[in-house]
Computed example of a mutant assay.
Amino acid sequence: MRPEATGIELYDRTADAASNEVIRAYSTSFGIASRLLGRRVRPHVRNIYALVRVADEIVDGPGEEAGMSTAEARAVLDALETETLAAVDRGFSANLIVHAFARTARLSGFAADLIGPFFASMRTDLTVRSHDAVSHDEYVYGSAEVVGLMCLRAFVGVDRPRAPQPSPALVEGARRLGAAFQDVNFLRDRRHDAGALGRDYLGIGGRSTTRTDVLDRIDADLAAAAAVIPQLPKDCRRAVTAAHDLFAELSARLRRNDTGGRVRVPDPVKLALAARALAGRAPGARQQAGGVGRSPIEETRA
């Protein structure tokens, strides 16, 4: 029988559980994909995404709904970044979500090199309302590509005495997968971002960028990422494949629906994609087989 945890081990487990609760509450799609990760890395990926979600909530609706001004939101975000970097350095935080993330960062071998750009992009949401091509790419790097790189560092570094550097091919694949995820979210949330938040991330229509241009970029990024997924550690491939194929499905549905409604993937299709990944199918197998995702587009919230 495993002895009951005490001290820092108990605190670590409690922090991991808190992060898992954040993920469970906010994202069914991520929850399905993360369950396909091996036990070695599953809590660490959840720890990364939980902190990302908390930071995102500071600059999006909940912070404003709580009555925070832009200056107050900036101060809260800055304090979260300061505490996160300090926790990575010292190995402890009184904030359970920060503690879990910091432990993952220490075990995976990343710190300010990836954390700084992430918070920089989050601060952008407080002041920038319309992005051009350059600011879009900078924002996507900090808000999404570095999150993919954090997960990649966990994939290759957790449980190693000295976390190795991932290969350049895997780095490129992680960045492009993160970029594809972000652009899909931008495209399907475009109406909400404009109406509720007053933001335009894509510049469609006004600066020689079309909706088709964005979808073509997404599909090219997804294809590039799919090519290197087989190089990931075995206990990560199925989860990344499931996530890849979910966003490929969203991209396909977005191409078929240009009315501006929020496209979603029905739960049975999500489960079918996860089952294909669990069975070891290669990323993109759905599109090749043509057997999933033929149901009518639904425009309700996922």
Score class of each variant (00 low, 15 high):
residue 41 V to H: 04
residue 42 R to F: 06
residue 43 P to I: 02
residue 43 P to A: 08
residue 43 P to M: 09
residue 44 H to E: 12
residue 45 V to R: 08
residue 45 V to N: 08
residue 45 V to M: 11
residue 49 Y to R: 10
residue 53 R to N: 08
residue 54 V to T: 12
residue 55 A to E: 02
residue 55 A to W: 01
residue 56 D to R: 09
residue 57 E to A: 13
residue 58 I to A: 05
residue 58 I to K: 03
residue 59 V to M: 07
residue 60 D to Y: 06
residue 62 P to K: 04
residue 63 G to I: 01
residue 65 E to N: 10
residue 68 M to R: 12
residue 71 A to T: 13
residue 72 E to N: 06
residue 73 A to T: 08
residue 73 A to E: 04
residue 74 R to I: 00
residue 74 R to F: 11
residue 75 A to S: 15
residue 77 L to N: 11
residue 81 E to Y: 08
residue 81 E to G: 00
residue 82 T to K: 15
residue 82 T to Y: 11
residue 83 E to V: 07
residue 84 T to V: 10
residue 85 L to F: 09
residue 85 L to M: 11
residue 87 A to D: 05
residue 90 R to E: 12
residue 92 F to H: 14
residue 92 F to Q: 12
residue 95 N to W: 01
residue 100 A to W: 02
residue 101 F to G: 03
residue 101 F to L: 09
residue 102 A to C: 13
residue 102 A to T: 12
residue 102 A to F: 09
residue 104 T to E: 03
residue 105 A to L: 07
residue 105 A to D: 05
residue 106 R to Y: 10
residue 107 L to S: 15
residue 108 S to Y: 04
residue 111 A to Y: 09
residue 113 D to A: 13
residue 114 L to N: 03
residue 115 I to T: 11
residue 116 G to H: 14
residue 117 P to L: 09
residue 118 F to A: 07
residue 120 A to C: 10
residue 121 S to P: 07
residue 122 M to T: 09
residue 122 M to F: 03
residue 123 R to L: 06
residue 124 T to Y: 02
residue 124 T to L: 12
residue 127 T to C: 00
residue 129 R to G: 15
